[in-house]
């Protein structure tokens, strides 16, 4: 009992002492904006839409980012090109709601939506925080350089016939009786 009381008391005193010693430690604060902090590449900041290595839009409007979003701040509508490619007719992120959780990037099956280290997104007018596809789409692949969804997917698009995707055999001749 006495030992418990003494131990507890000493532990409190030790805590106070250790915290007091922090007075003489180097401070962690980075004095932004006088000093630019180092942003890690996987920092979750401003969201962009990337293009595949061939320069086509990566987003296929599958809606997974929108449904993964915990604050429901992504809205989009699927459109379809002549050749069967899916793309977003509009793609809107309401950054005034976004919490930069990165779930959309996790959910994206085509690496289209990515979070970047840019965090300087403050606006004086809230309406300016609603970004449309034109604002989001960049001319590059972002963090993932080689992935092209349509080279893997089975859907036929211009320049990639049936059977030409990764790991695909040529289309079957239904009329053939050969094994």
């Amino acid at each position: 009992m006495i030992k418990l009381i003494v131990d507890t008391l000493l532990s409190q005193v030790r805590t106070l002492w250790l915290v007091f010693l922090k007075l003489f430690k180097k401070k962690d604060t980075v004095e932004y904006p006088d000093q630019q902090p180092y942003m890690f590449p996987r920092w979750r900041g401003r969201i962009i839409l990337s293009r595949d290595p061939d320069g086509e839009e990566r987003c296929v409007a599958c809606n997974l980012c929108a449904v993964a979003c915990p604050v429901d701040c992504i809205a989009l509508q699927k459109g379809e090109m002549e050749d069967g490619r899916w793309y977003p007719e509009f793609f809107r992120i309401n950054f005034s709601r976004c919490i930069m959780c990165g779930f959309c990037e996790e959910a994206c099956p085509t690496n289209a939506i990515q979070l970047t280290p840019d965090f300087e997104m403050a606006e004086y007018i809230r309406q300016d925080m609603v970004w449309e596809k034109e604002d989001l789409l960049i001319n590059g692949t972002g963090k993932y350089h080689d992935y092209n969804f349509y080279r893997v997917a089975g859907k036929q698009i211009e320049g990639k016939d049936k059977g030409e995707a990764l790991n695909e055999a040529a289309p079957v001749d239904v009329r053939s009786l050969l094994p």
Binding site: V19, F20, K22, L23, K25, K26, K27, D28, T29, E31
Partner: peptide
């Protein structure tokens, strides 16, 4: 408080 939390 800042100093004791290694802040400025």
């Amino acid at each position: 408080l800042g100093f004791w939390q290694e802040r400025l």
